[in-house]
Amino acid sequence: MSVVFLRAVILYILLIFTVRLMGKRQIGELQPSELAITILISNIATLPVEDTGLPLLTGIVPIVTLASLDVIMSWLGMKSRLVRRFTCGKPVIIINNGVLDQKSMRSIRFTIDDLSESLRSQGIFDISEVQFAVVETTGKLSVYQKYKYRGVTNEDMELKKKDSDPPDIVISDGELVPEVMERLSVSSEWIDNTLRRERTSVKNVFMMTVSPDKKYSIILKN
């Protein structure tokens, strides 16, 4: 039993390392090859835990090899379009100029139901609203609507305001977040003075956000 426990602990640490090595990606954003590798790694990881007769290395070696190859292929994909095509495929245009390209749909086995579902999930219930649509390499549909169906933008309304980054968290659960403070050029003195004005202190703050123009909001701990 202790062998299984220790193996599970080792593999847990290894999997965290492997996932960190592969980088951050949402499951829905995984490329097909990345998804296959993720499933493969999770399957391999179970083998030496289930079967103590197997050396742990028979689990560790393929896991780190697959993750490393994935990282190397991603890097090569950044350098070479050809490698990118090979590992990720290419996006396929299925609606061009408002016209459905049935041949392209057949080539990627994308059904009418898939198309309707993807459009509905983006709030489009009438295909005639679509000017241009692409099935991305992740299988997600990207849609560009016809001009008359697109939302009104600030530019359309000729509203002018300076672009700025959104507010970010400088105090999280009573603790300062130095990297955000540095990015927003917020000093701890400024935070102390601000909190003094609000008659509180850092350890009593549940969350404090600050925008680049130094507007802030504070949520106190209960």
Binding site: V61, S68, L69, V71, I72, W75
Partner: peptide, 14 residues
């Protein structure tokens, strides 16, 4: 750094 780590791991395994 990830690429270097990955290459190092592959080299170490070989």
């Amino acid at each position: 750094s990830r690429v270097i780590t990955a290459i190092s791991i592959i080299t170490a395994i070989i």
